[in-house]
Design a protein around this nucleic acid. Structure first.
Lengths: 353, 353
DNA sequence: CATCGTTGCCAAAGCGCTTTATCACGGCAC
DNA sequence: GTGCCGTGATAAAGCGCTTTGGCAACGATG
């Protein structure tokens, strides 16, 4: 109810300068004597002046707003990206307006129009993962467009993705650190870039240590595939040749764990397991059972936003790496580091869903 | 790069009317002959005119934007609320700008200022649950402020919350439907409103069927509490008097399940379990093990937004129920309905014993 | 002393749209 | 013919700020 807010012109009047000068003081442009500048700032503070962002926008042509177009905001991975992007943006005093296409092409088009109508300064498109593709909207905007967690179908566009190869390398390093060397990889379709990249990172890092990957099974990102893969390994005895498994994601990892434990194989004593996604962390569980690689989606979002912000400034916009990757982080759990191996832990993790 | 967009004045010129008339056609105000109106609309379409939302805002004083202030966007429950609110808002062509206070009081204050500066038409504050309280910001805005998933500390404010009592009733109904009648309640601190409300709903519904609650244990919303409670029930034999447990949330439910299974009690044959939160659904798992009550946070968000929108219209804003509750929905899983004893359950059982 | 470059400030012209007050016009009643 | 009224359209005045061009005043320069 602090209804009528203070106008810049009132500040100017009170500070005994012109509106123009006051305006220049407020956004540090133009030439203003230090004394005057201070006087105006002081007056503004005294009157509790709040710039009217809207008027500013229409006058300057910039809305100080970045549009966020989520391909599907309900998706599991969207939130951290959104939060990261939002944090970055609010640091530089940019607002973000969210539009959720919810996988609906028609809705997405509408949203693009809305973003245009609102004259957002830039756009961050949030996809659903390394292997998701977004229809490019770059040509529909005059400002910068950055794709987070998705590849645009236009190779010119800037995409920010988690570093899948690095994730694989992290797993390899961790296994080596905890003394494992006979590693298997149980993952999803080999047609997926993320799958291939993770495997590449894993093998390269192993090779650097003079080791090599013992076994690879391609399937899908599901718990059932984890079950099946583990059963196969147990049945054909190949589990004997292995002391660690890098799982394509946490779902697979949980399936593996459950089946292995059921077959009397101890985790991590007999087989250590690392997953990807840090699902436990996502739902706020510290001290997880499963060691997992957090792909740092928040950083992906923040990076995308930062890139958009950087491109906002017309200066020096030439260096254009079109794919930017963000390194992940290994979150240790008892599935590799051991410690109290309570059966409880496993039950917990697998029961959650 | 469809750089320069069409101005309303160009539409006006092309349709051979004045700017004023065109403007009036565009937002249905003023008196315009039907023929003229059609001509203008047709011209606008032909030229692909997109109104400049910013200019409109500054001229009309309304920004067509609702601010969303999240107490902590990273919280598990925020996303669905946000998505729901956003969906509602975009239906009436309102943009939403998100500000995440991340539990930081100072940051929150800054965000409030930003929201003021941007002259948002209304605000939706997103809290962290029925028992979370939000500092009222209603007096800092001239427009409507609605609190979702949180109670404002000013009793005048409008708060939208999940219907905890209804959740309890749903659980009771479900238990009765699947033939259970000796129900226990394992939940968190009895000082919490949500806890008391859920219990009230549960007992009232049971009483309606001539049954009564057999046992209640208060603890906390953690797995460990679920364990402890189950152990106690097993040890003192009270588990014998029970054929179903309503758990305060999914974490407790998981703890219960794990411990009960470990004690050789079959789920759901011996004891059925219902949780609250639908955590499985949240991470995208259909066909969950645990039957759980989805509190419909998305609807909470949508309702909050709708209320804010309704209050936007100066007309008829008098009816003010300050607490609005949203009914939840039971999502059946195998912990009550049984069915295929999936490998997972088997694993769990064999693993424990 | 005339010239020039700085420095500090401001008047005024937008930005693209909304809204209000006004006006021209044709029909209708008297 | 005069007066009135309803209709449709418009000119013009904002909205609150940014930005440009220009103008004094001043010290430095030759």
């Amino acid at each position: 109810m602090s209804n009528r807010s203070v106008r810049l012109v009132e500040v100017a009047r009170a500070a005994d300068v012109s509106l123009a000068t006051a305006s220049q003081v407020m956004n540090g442009s133009g030439r203003v004597a230090e004394a005057t500048r201070q006087r105006v700032l002081e007056t503004a503070r005294r009157l509790d002046y709040r710039p009217n962002a809207l008027a500013r926008s229409v006058a300057s042509g910039r809305s100080s707003t970045v549009g966020i177009l989520a391909e599907n905001a309900s998706g599991m991975f969207c939130m951290p990206v959104l939060v990261g992007a939002n944090r970055s943006l609010s640091r530089v005093d940019l607002a973000s307006t969210l539009y959720d296409a919810a996988h609906d092409v028609k809705l997405r088009r509408e949203h693009v129009r809305r973003l245009q109508a609102r004259h957002v300064d830039g756009v961050v498109v949030i996809g659903e993962g390394t292997d998701s593709r977004s229809a490019s909207v770059s040509h529909e905007f005059s400002g910068p467009v950055v794709y987070a967690l998705s590849r645009s179908d236009d190779p010119q566009d800037i995409c920010v993705l988690p570093d899948d190869a690095h994730a694989g390398a992290l797993a390899a390093q961790h296994f080596l650190e905890v003394g494992r060397s006979r590693i298997a990889h149980v993952t999803a379709e080999s047609s997926l870039t993320s799958v291939r990249d993770r495997e590449r990172g894993l093998t390269e890092e192993l090779e650097r240590a003079g080791q090599r990957l013992v076994d690879v099974s391609y399937g899908s990102f599901t718990r059932d595939w984890g079950f099946a893969a583990a059963r196969r390994m147990v049945e054909d005895g190949s589990i004997r040749d292995i002391d660690a498994i890098f799982a394509g994601n946490d779902q697979i990892a949980i399936g593996l764990e459950a089946q292995l434990l059921a077959s009397g194989i101890r985790i991590p004593e007999d087989v250590a397991i690392v997953g990807v996604d840090n699902a436990a962390g996502m739902i706020g569980n510290t001290d997880p059972f499963l060691t997992s690689i957090d792909l740092r989606f928040d950083v992906v979002g923040a990076t995308a936003a930062d890139l958009a912000v950087a491109r906002l400034d017309p200066a020096a916009d030439d260096d254009k790496p079109t794919i930017v990757t963000v390194p992940g982080m290994l979150v240790p759990g008892r599935s590799t580091v051991g410690g109290t191996t309570s059966p409880r832990s496993l039950v917990l993790e697998s029961l959650i869903s």
